[in-house]
Design a protein around this nucleic acid. Structure first.
Length: 155
DNA sequence: GCCAACGTTGGC
DNA sequence: GCCAACGTTGGC
């Protein structure tokens, strides 16, 4: 079964986990997502899908690199760990509530494509792009092939 | 640190 | 099932 490659935007706070951190570890389980919509997007991911890595809640928010999805979704272990910030007492092993995928470093962009710059291209990106949609706080969201191409051409 | 936007929770 | 209260996100 091969599905057509799809594309995603994944946000991370660089203080917590940056593109440099991903480069260092190579592959990271994308744990801690506790939003159903974001979770559902991860559950629909396929190995090989492209990821735009976005730095949020920092001095210069923007797209800083690319990664690839390197596993399909599986249960996020941190939900079962009482000591974790991400612990969810309502989740059970029999019926895990939260999933994650593994994300593997691909490359850092030569420069940050800042949120400010992305906004200047809002019209070209069209509707339904998370970063230019007002009020969108989803940490995982879909990107079209056209948006992917357009954004990386800005680099 | 402020605050708008939005998701979740829980009383009724 | 409504909705007020509360918590979180994330730009600024």
């Amino acid at each position: 079964m091969t599905a057509r490659k799809r594309y995603w935007l994944m946000k991370s706070e660089p203080d917590a986990f940056s593109i440099d951190d991903l480069e260092k570890v190579g592959t990271e389980p994308w744990n801690g997502v506790r939003n159903y919509q974001a979770r559902n997007f991860m559950r629909s991911m396929q190995v090989g899908d492209g990821v735009l890595f976005y730095h949020s809640n920092c001095k210069e928010p923007g797209i800083v690199g690319t990664a690839t999805v390197s596993s399909t979704a599986y249960p996020d272990e941190t939900q079962f760990d009482p000591k974790s910030d991400y612990h969810d007492p309502k989740s059970t092993r029999e019926d895990p509530r939260w999933s994650l995928v593994d994300v593997t470093f691909e490359r850092k962009l030569k420069r940050t494509i800042t949120l400010e710059e992305v906004k200047q291209h809002a019209d070209a990106l069209g509707e339904g792009f998370a970063l230019t949609q007002r009020g969108s706080r989803l940490s995982v969201s879909p990107v079209t092939a056209a948006q992917w191409k357009y954004l990386l051409a800005l680099e």
